[in-house]
Design a protein around this nucleic acid. Structure first.
Lengths: 201, 201, 201, 201
DNA sequence: GATGAATGAGGGTTCATTCAT
DNA sequence: CATGAATGAACCCTCATTCAT
């Protein structure tokens, strides 16, 4: 991998786990075994690096969702595909949920416009699915925005709370009765079915 | 209001909107029209101030939920009360959703133990409600953890995205067809009904 | 004991063990279980408190040396009395050696004039002893200043290095062969004899 | 000279004359005509800078003493070489006596272990000299530790009190009878002879 | 392409001191 | 006599950024 990509990967991980302000260019540089100045050779400044990462992540997300939804015919399956693909992207990119949550906690005020557009693209996909479901009288009426919040919110919290839930369990358990720690995929699937359930007439 | 409380209020607002690291003691002080040193007279350091705020918020939340749930008899109403009270607290405190999202994005690694305990308290409330619903054969089986993630996630995103959704709407609309901007309360109520729907046999 | 004396005692101990700059009014106050402001009631400021302590210590020292020397007739005994009393004061007051060493390391530039005068008083005592010894042809010729430096320097280092010498010994020893840790008094006596030896014709 | 060395020199002088706590990074920086941050580029923090200086000084001292003592054959000359070289180092480095006195006044509690080891090295040199003198029946029996305290103490006080002695003399003298201000080297030589005298059978 | 050196601004924290009560 | 509250200055340290090489 070339250096620019290494910087991007390391920076993405740090921005997600520590947040924008708590991640220093020094942190990124030392994790990459290069100097700070080398980062400035590849990126104009910290902001630009961050925006680049945000945009890349959300573009991927939007694209993959569109493709996955496009591959399905029935509206129920489109809905499931929407949720599951969202979950898969969260899982694969590993950092998108944290990045998203931080931006939303910020009120979106620092969200780069390009990244915002990508989020709106996914929202349009969902809107179309629900509208189509309504027209076919398969889905109840619900504002797409509310459903979007439920999908994104549920999956983001489900993903980002994994570590702390594990830690809490370890501390409270007395060793023996180790509960099955359900995988993120399994739980995400349940969420998709639950939401579909709530939608169906 | 005394100065200590003023500091707490200002700090809470800044921590929520800017995040812990991006909020400086100077910011807090100047918004309170006092000096930095005055803050250090009232609080040992920035961490302590932050923890104090977190703990206070989550304690309030847990207490009010317990009371509201306790006031209901039927299990469905308990569930609704749980979700609605959660939403009301988010609305009233104004900052709890942002604080929570940031902590979760951090993987909970900086969450003060006391605040964590309060979150577990609310989780226990929900667990009891679902268990009771299962026993009465009113509710389907679902892991309480998953339901908790759906409730917290949906409401948190619904609340924190208000500003940016408004902004997006204003920019995209051509003025005339101004959609009804549904209030947070209304939307939260719909979420509670949707989730209850998905639970009921 | 009244509060003023308590402040003096605590401050003396801290100034000696930590140094002037590293001792804060807060440190003194909390060790006395009073507030900072209470200290300012009794003393104009930190400097004044420090000077008061320095002056008191050096005055005691000079007085006691004068008395002890005056109690002896023979010049050899006067010399021994001088050294031993110096050592006793170091031992009794516990902090005079550290205070003195810090002042000297500072080049004496912050030494309050009164305290300096007291040191000169002791020096005059020694000068008289040596002069008298010279006249009686009992002592070799040596500049009193040099002898003064030898006395003060030897005793101050002997006293202040006690802790670290003990620590070094403990760390190096393998437990069994515990060397006799000579007491400060014993060692000080040997120093006095050694110096007298070197003086005598 | 490069900047790192300039920082070291300036810092050494300030640490010696003002003490660790009373020397600010800003003081050092402005005396070097650089910014604070430049110091942090070269040294991790204030402590590290200080330790570096201490260690360097004491290492030089120990090395030069060992060499000088090794160059002599007769045990009396070894002893003289020990004292004189100590004095020369105090004179050449200019700051070692103050640094040492401050550390001892602190009870050695902040002394970096490496610097302490160097001091022990010089002590071992002296111990060997005295032991050898005892075996040859040239020296009286005296604990090396006591002799070490006398050497270090006498020389340190002799050196650090130069300025204040001069000041006192100027203020007290009425102009005419200006005493010869003996040089540090001359006085140190007298001290070495005096101590040798006291040692010899 | 990449680095070493440096900077200016700012951040958290401490501290001597003051003053109304 | 003593305190609680507050201040302004200073202090240590970090950080994004720049630039000559």
């Amino acid at each position: 991998m070339n250096k620019k990509n290494m910087i991007l990967e390391v920076a993405e991980q740090l921005f997600a786990s520590e947040g924008y302000t708590s991640t220093s260019i020094d942190d990124i540089a030392s994790k990459c075994d290069i100097t700070k100045a080398a980062i400035y050779y590849h990126f104009k400044n910290k902001q630009e690096l961050y925006r680049y990462i945000l945009q890349k992540n959300f573009m991927n997300l939007a694209q993959n969702i569109e493709i996955a939804v496009g591959n399905e015919d029935k509206v129920e399956n489109k809905f499931i595909a929407y949720v599951i693909t969202f979950a898969q992207e969260i899982q694969n990119s590993k950092h998108i949920a944290s990045l998203l949550m931080r931006e939303m906690a910020n009120g979106g005020k620092d969200m780069p416009p390009d990244a915002l557009k990508e989020m709106l693209r996914t929202f349009k996909s969902l809107t179309l699915i629900i509208k189509s479901g309504n027209e076919q009288k398969i889905f109840k009426c619900i504002e797409p925005m509310i459903m979007q919040m439920m999908i994104i919110g549920s999956l983001s919290f489900l993903f980002t709370t994994q570590k702390i839930r594990k830690k809490v369990k370890e501390e409270s358990d007395t060793g023996a009765k180790v509960d099955i720690q359900h995988s993120f995929e399994q739980s995400a699937y349940k969420i998709s079915m639950t939401l579909l359930n709530s939608l169906e007439e």
